[in-house]
Measured scan of single mutants.
Amino acid sequence: SFQYVPVQLQGGAPWGFTLKGGLEHCEPLTVSKIEDGGKAALSQKMRTGDELVNINGTPLYGSRQEALILIKGSFRILKLIVRRRN
């Protein structure tokens, strides 16, 4: 089963996490790295392996390109929903 975790990061880029996968690579869009001391790490809500399913209220369909555009369009606040295996 899965758990959906809301994450809100503040203060602008860099957000402190790296993505891998996506439709382009025929795999889920997941968090591959969280930078020590970065905003994602400080939130204590994101983990490597989390799947990104929503950015700023926009549902994602797995495209890494789409996710990067939405993330780049976030100035002060980035709201994410990640899906994690229980």
Rank of each mutant, 00 (worst) to 15 (best):
P6M: 14
L80H: 04
V82R: 02
I81S: 01
P59R: 10
Y4C: 04
K39Y: 07
I34E: 01
Q10C: 12
K20T: 12
L80E: 00
K79G: 05
G62H: 07
P14H: 00
N86Y: 08
P59D: 15
V82L: 13
L52D: 00
L19S: 03
I71E: 02
A67Y: 02
V7H: 08
Y4L: 10
G12P: 09
E51P: 05
T30V: 12
I55H: 00
E51V: 05
L70D: 02
G16D: 06
F75S: 15
S1F: 08
I71G: 01
S63W: 08
L78Y: 00
I81K: 07
V31S: 01
E66F: 07
Q10K: 12
P14R: 05
L60H: 00
L78N: 06
F75C: 13
D50W: 04
A41N: 07
G11E: 00
F75A: 14
S1E: 15
N86V: 14
R76I: 02
I55G: 02
N86I: 13
E66H: 12
G21L: 02
W15M: 00
D36L: 10
N56F: 07
T48R: 10
G22C: 04
G73Y: 12
F75P: 15
A41C: 12
V5S: 05
I34W: 02
Q65V: 08
L70K: 11
L80K: 02
L60G: 02
I55D: 00
R76L: 08
H25L: 11
E35N: 09
E35Y: 12
F17T: 04
V82I: 12
I71P: 03
S74W: 06
I69M: 15
Q3N: 11
P28C: 03
L60A: 06
R84Q: 05
K72S: 11
T58S: 08
R64M: 15
R85G: 08
D36E: 13
K79A: 07
I81H: 04
P14E: 02
R84A: 03
Q65P: 06
V31L: 09
V7N: 04
L29Y: 06
K72A: 12
C26W: 10
Y4R: 01
E66Y: 06
A67N: 03
G57T: 08
V31F: 03
G22Q: 00
K33R: 12
E24Y: 06
N86M: 14
L19T: 05
F17Y: 00
T48M: 11
I55A: 02
L60K: 01
L42F: 09
T58N: 10
K33V: 11
C26A: 13
A13N: 08
K33F: 14
F2C: 06
E35G: 05
L29F: 09
S43L: 04
F75M: 14
